[in-house]
Design a binder for these strands. Structure first.
Length: 225
DNA sequence: GAGAAGATTATCT
DNA sequence: GATAATCTTCTCC
C-alpha cells in the first residue's frame, strides 16, 4: 500500500499539464519519461520537444477539428496522444490544457537513462546515441503503439517522473519545427542546446532554417509523370 | 470507393 | 541532398 502510494507520487500531477502548451513544452525538457511493460522498464530524459495546437496552428492535427484519430488531443490534459504516420512510425505527444483546447507536445528525442538493453532490442541494434533520437525512434524504443493512445500519464504504465528537471547545465534552445510545410514561421521547437541526443540536422538548429520541399510520393510521382 | 497526404527514418550517392 | 518504404486517415466525388 505504502509502496503503491510512493509510486503514484513519482508521476507529475495533472496541474503540470493543465497549462499553456508552450509553457509545458519548455518545462518538459530535462524530465524523465518512463515506460513500464512486462518486458521491463525503459526511461529517458526529454531533450527535444515541439508544441502543437491552439486555434491558429495550421500544422496541428487538431486544426481540421475533432476526428477519431485526434480525439485524445481534445480530451483532458496529462494523457498520451499516440498516432501512426508514414505507414511505419508512431509518435508520442503529451496532451496539455486547458481541456478542449486540443494542444499537445510532441516528444522528439530522449537521452537514454534506464532499460538500455530492452531499448536496444526494440531498436534492432542501432548505436546507443540513436536509440531515442527522433519521434519515431522514441516510440519504438519505448514500445509504444496506437494502443497506448489515451494513456493517463499521471498513473502509468507510462509516466513522467516528478521532481526537478535535470538539464545538465544546458541552456534551452528554440527554433522552427521540423518536418512540416505550414506554419513554419513558428519557433515552437525546444531542445537542450548541445545535447547529443537531439534530432534534426545542424541546419535545423540554425535560426531561420526552412524545411526542404516535400519529396514526391509514389502516387504524386505517377501523377506528375 | 479512390486518391492524396503525412509532426519519419534509413540508406544511398 | 534525394529517395524508398509503408499504411492509416481524411477528403472528395
Amino acid at each position: 500500500m505504502r509502496r503503491r502510494r510512493a509510486t503514484e507520487r513519482r508521476a507529475l500531477p495533472r496541474p503540470f499539464f493543465d497549462r499553456p502548451v508552450l509553457t509545458v513544452a519548455r518545462d518538459l525538457l530535462g524530465r524523465t519519461l518512463v515506460r513500464r511493460t512486462r518486458s521491463g522498464e525503459v526511461a529517458g530524459r526529454i531533450v527535444e520537444v515541439e508544441a502543437y495546437g491552439g486555434p491558429t496552428d495550421a500544422a496541428s492535427h487538431a486544426r481540421p477539428g475533432r476526428t477519431a484519430r485526434n480525439a485524445t488531443m481534445f480530451g483532458p490534459p496529462g494523457h498520451a496522444y499516440v498516432y501512426f504516420t508514414y505507414g511505419m512510425h508512431y509518435c508520442l505527444n503529451v496532451v496539455t490544457g486547458p481541456h478542449g483546447r486540443a494542444a499537445a507536445v510532441l516528444i522528439r528525442a530522449l537521452a537514454p537513462e534506464r532499460g538500455l538493453e530492452l531499448a536496444r532490442a526494440r531498436r534492432g541494434g542501432v548505436p546507443d546515441e540513436r536509440l531515442m533520437r527522433g519521434p519515431g525512434c522514441v516510440a519504438q524504443a519505448l514500445g509504444l503503439d496506437r494502443a497506448d493512445d489515451g494513456t493517463d500519464l499521471t498513473r502509468g504504465p507510462l509516466w513522467l517522473e516528478a521532481g526537478a528537471p535535470h538539464r545538465d547545465g544546458r541552456a534551452t534552445a528554440r527554433g522552427p519545427r521540423i518536418g512540416i510545410r505550414v506554419a513554419v514561421e513558428r519557433r515552437w521547437r525546444f531542445w537542450l542546446a548541445g545535447d547529443p541526443a537531439v534530432s534534426g540536422s545542424k541546419r535545423a538548429a540554425a535560426v531561420g532554417h526552412r524545411p526542404r520541399s516535400r519529396p514526391a510520393t509514389r502516387r504524386s510521382r505517377l501523377t506528375l509523370a
